[in-house]
Design a protein around this nucleic acid. Structure first.
Lengths: 344, 344
DNA sequence: AACAAGAGTGCAAACGTTTTTACAAGAGAA
DNA sequence: TTCTCTTGTAAAAACGTTTGCACTCTTGTT
């Protein structure tokens, strides 16, 4: 049996409520009592039981993090570990714990979140990325449960979100490539029902149209998943089309690495035959050959900011803005330098 | 205010204890009652309060995962996300939640774990990697709190661990390189107070000595951290030594990538001038140029197995063995093929 | 016919806190 | 002196479950 607050109270010759007040630092406790009780607590090695505390205070000091999709896919990309790191760092700093959850299907996820919310297991929830119609977002919104979405969903424009301006980022990348002299630019992305994909696609598209170029359908939105399974064949087909793109905007550096390796096998060289510009600035990108240009979207900061916003709203601080945009930064490396080879 | 078990009991015309028994699936409840109560629960949208349940049952159905070192370093390598994935997958499958914790210093970690244990916040703990003298291991061992260590520590040989046979793995790699005809083989590792580093170093060394070669001090144990900061200079010095190694055993593929890029800058080519064999089989390793040979240590399985062992022991199942070894697998790729260039 | 066994359910006591309310003692003001 | 504030502490009521014990019916056994 563990030491309880009652044991401490007895040993100190005070009531449990006094001990409780000492712990919470109430002002209405005399310095002498406080000191004495603290000494006893130290001596007995007392630690308050978290569950009892949570039960009566109706607070858990825990935030839940819902990982997207299947647990088995959740960590393949650098995005998830990095954003988790940011969240954990800020949460711990504010005295909150982090509870990881995941679900294979949409339905499983809703169920998991329901348990968390209705079971009062967590005080708030952080969601990663969002589909256009996200059942979890809808549920939390209906329940009026505190949560923040990393990403955004057009269906609920007024929920708390932390996001990049993905449209602008893709626009910037495309502009960059256009300025390098490219006109036939392709786009490799994920499924369009993911908001991040459609945002980036839209940015790409609007930059192209603004430049007076109507991209051909076989240039854009080559599904990244297809590339993963069958990169070699997809790339050889793409390179075989009559007016093939000379540059590609790629949703993620990992996919870019795959393209790099496929192109190399096919005997093409980057950036001479094809310029590549990726996203997410993978730590490998600077040391691949050639180094891959990428958009640093501040993944860590995304997580950090989300946790900060959530904790702030849990503490009842009125959040000045519900939507936070984390700035992005284009990092041009060798893979997108079309006309000049920096090594020569 | 949320629906409680009492509300359900009233609506169903039974006592709270009956409802409780229906939830826990007690055998001593008639089918009719069970059905009726379940219908009411569904209708009212009742979910049991986790904290109340935990308090009285003295169980949290949560396992804590202590991430090594600073939160900020925890996820840099592929190891941590991958092992977390394995743990989360198995934990969720067994109905357990996962609580992430971290601490900057050894002291902070002990404090965090103490709170978790004494505050009865979790039922068991999983530890990642271990130093030779690990204060957290010592604490948990003293407290007799259920935990499993991924890795091992010589100080406590009888605690529950899940580990690779790192000595054997490094031995195998070194033997492999020796069989390829290399005699001057170097070793790049982490600090020797990490058990995983010293185990691998020992395996390397014993393979060399068995082959009748005494490795020169400037060949081995080049600290990986130095390489990260200053890879180019360290490599150029190494390549300048009179009897420089022709092959390197490298603690982690990430470090291998750095070496690859340094060597390429210095004008050396891999594997012609230097063979490289890494560890941890990073997903990037097959697509780097050249593809990096690596030891697949089954990181996911390490996590999965650890969670399985912990949950098993929490359920009171006597664990048949306290020490589990996850098998490793050498994957030879181009970076270690010294004599034959597979492309030619 | 009486009794034992067992199935099904309710009562009430935990679990270890926080928090509201009440109260005692001492200090200053009338 | 008496009254009103403060200041410090105690008592007791939650919080929402689980669970040991007791009780009431059936049903089968002697």
């Amino acid at each position: 049996m563990n030491i309880t607050i009652i044991d401490v109270a007895k040993a100190a010759g005070v009531s449990p409520s006094t001990v409780s007040r000492v712990i919470s630092g109430s002002t209405r406790i005399s310095a002498a009592t406080s000191k004495k009780v603290k000494a006893i607590m130290e001596e007995l090695g007392y630690h308050p039981n978290a569950m009892a505390k949570n039960l009566v205070s109706r607070t858990t000091m825990t935030i839940g993090l819902l990982l997207p999709r299947n647990a088995d896919e959740a960590f393949l990309d650098i995005f998830f570990p990095e954003v988790t790191r940011g969240i954990l760092s800020q949460a711990n700093r504010s005295g909150y714990d982090l509870l990881l959850k995941t679900g294979m299907t949409e339905c499983e996820k809703v169920e998991a979140v329901t348990k968390l919310v209705k079971g009062r297991r967590v005080d708030g929830i952080i969601l990663l990325q969002s589909r256009n119609k996200d059942a979890v977002v809808r549920f939390l919104h209906e329940e009026k449960f505190p949560f923040v979405l990393i990403g955004r969903t057009p269906e609920f424009p007024d929920i708390m979100t932390v996001d990049n301006d993905n449209r602008q980022a893709a626009y910037d990348v495309t502009r960059h490539l256009l300025q390098q002299g490219h006109t036939r630019i392709g786009f490799v992305g994920g499924p369009l029902e993911m908001v991040v994909s459609s945002d980036r696609f839209e940015g790409y598209r609007s930059a192209m149209q603004e430049a007076g170029i109507e991209p051909r359908p076989d240039w854009y939105h080559i599904e990244a998943s297809k590339l993963k399974d069958d990169g070699y064949r997809v790339m050889s087909m793409l390179m075989g089309t009559p007016e093939r793109p000379t540059a590609l905007v790629v949703m993620d550096d990992l996919v870019a690495f795959g393209i790099l390796s496929s192109l190399s096998e096919l005997g093409y060289s980057v950036p001479q035959d094809m310029a590549i510009f990726g996203f997410n600035n993978n730590p490998m990108s600077p040391v691949s050959s050639p180094p891959v240009s990428s958009v640093d979207i501040g993944v860590y900061q995304l997580g950090f900011t989300a946790a900060q916003a959530l904790v702030g709203s849990l503490k009842g601080q009125p959040q000045e803005r519900r939507r936070t945009i984390v700035p992005h930064r284009l990092i041009a490396r060798e893979s997108s330098m079309h006309w000049i080879n920096p090594k020569s």
